[in-house]
Amino acid sequence: MYDRILVPTDGSAETARVVEHAAELAEAHGAELHAIYVVNSATFASLPMETSWEGINDMLQEEGESALEDVRRVADRYDVSLTTHLVEGPPNREIVRYAEQGGFDLIVMGTHGRGGIDRLLLGSVAERVVRASTVPVLTVRVGTDENSPKTEASEGAKGSS
């Protein structure tokens, strides 16, 4: 059913749970597993002009590489091939673009499951991906009891452009 699975990472400790779920799916289906980290350089646009952009970019790249290495450590426990990707841009747009252009069958990503005012104020990369993606998205709730994983499936916005 799945040949290519994409798992975005933000470098948080909770991502391990999401990667485990994605790796289990990839192993069960004999699928390729790809991890993506999106450097969101727009968040640093408000820094003073005298700030060294090169230094910030280097720091963000290092964070991304570290996050992808964390994914590799988790995926190594499974019989799957893992390819990692480091890209720049708005995370939700880059995840959707990468998944659609790369011919992925599934995106597996974490969500904190916030609702109400928290979601309104903080936004949700996962929610934006679910709404914009034509690739099905499986969300794995993080930040809850580790012994009771909760997942939700979405078919994405089929046929929207």
Rank of each mutant, 00 (worst) to 15 (best):
L68C: 09
L68Y: 02
L68G: 11
E69L: 12
V71M: 06
R72P: 12
R73W: 06
R73K: 15
V74C: 11
Y78M: 10
L82G: 03
T83P: 03
T84I: 11
T84R: 09
T84C: 05
T84E: 14
G89T: 04
P91G: 07
P91F: 00
N92H: 15
N92W: 11
R93Y: 05
E94G: 07
V96H: 01
V96Y: 01
A99V: 05
E100F: 05
E100N: 04
Q101I: 11
Q101A: 15
F104K: 03
F104E: 07
D105P: 04
I107W: 00
G110C: 07
T111S: 07
H112L: 09
R114E: 12
G115S: 15
G116N: 05
D118H: 13
D118K: 14
L122A: 12
G123T: 08
V125R: 01
E127M: 02
A132T: 09
S133F: 08
S133G: 09
T134R: 15
V135T: 15
V135Q: 06
V135G: 06
P136M: 02
V137W: 05
L138H: 04
V140G: 08
V140D: 06
T144K: 13
T144D: 10
D145Q: 06
S148T: 14
P149W: 00
E152S: 13
E152K: 10
A153S: 15
S154N: 12
E155G: 14
E155S: 15
A157F: 01
